[in-house]
Amino acid sequence: MAVGDRPTKRAGEDAAATAAGAATETKAAASQLAPITTGELTAPIVVPNTLWQAVNPLAYDGGRPAEITHLREFGLTDAGRHDDGRWGGLQVIPTQADNILDLIRANSLWPLLSGLACCAFEMMSAATSKNDMDRWGMFPFRASPRQSDVLIVAGTLTTKMAGPLVRLWEEMPEPKWCVALGDCTVSGGRYKRSYSTVQGIDRVMPVDVYIPGCPPRPEGLIYGMMQLGQLVKDQRGHWPEREIGPTVPDKI
């Protein structure tokens, strides 16, 4: 197999340009071409595997195809996941870049320096001397949403603050994660009956980790951030498919 087995748009255009004189024949030839899908690679790039073959072709989950298909198609299947041992003999690992980058991201989650209310004190306590979040790569609280990975919503979210907070969340570059710190952000908490608060921030933005408590201890935040790191590792390479927007449906 090689590139160009199936006719592409560019091949059809070239044929039309060279055979401009014989109009009827080219029209007939063009009508026989396959339908064109713009923007998509119509023929997969196939790279024969000359690097490595398993001794037992049936090993490792029933074996793998003898030739490595196009990397994007390979990435869409689950074949390359959860069995990193099979690639151990290779110098080059064919994988999506996000699979590797997310391993780095999981160990260096930079939160946004954004405190709304009481829980901000416990967040700062988790970052300073006694409970030092820096030990797990979580310290550098960035003051700009452009430079941060995690939004820790620390404190009650009121209806007036919801707009600026969602704007902050949308200003953060992908990939980004959200941690709901405290009862108020998890479900409304003690302000469930209030007229001016948002009953849980998952009504306005997606949440990855919920940390209950009023307020949670700093150890709770550290544990939640470690769980988030595990979540990033577990879902590595798949964050583009995540839903954006609130995770609670309307009228609940």
Binding site: T37, T38, G39, E40, E174, W239, P240, E241, R242, E243, I244, G245, P246, P249, D250, K251
Partner: peptide
């Protein structure tokens, strides 16, 4: 219950016409 259309960050299937 009204359902919200799911928006994702994944690549669109077809690029819009130039």
């Amino acid at each position: 219950m009204p359902t919200r259309p799911v928006r994702t960050n994944s690549r669109p299937k077809q690029r819009p016409p130039e």
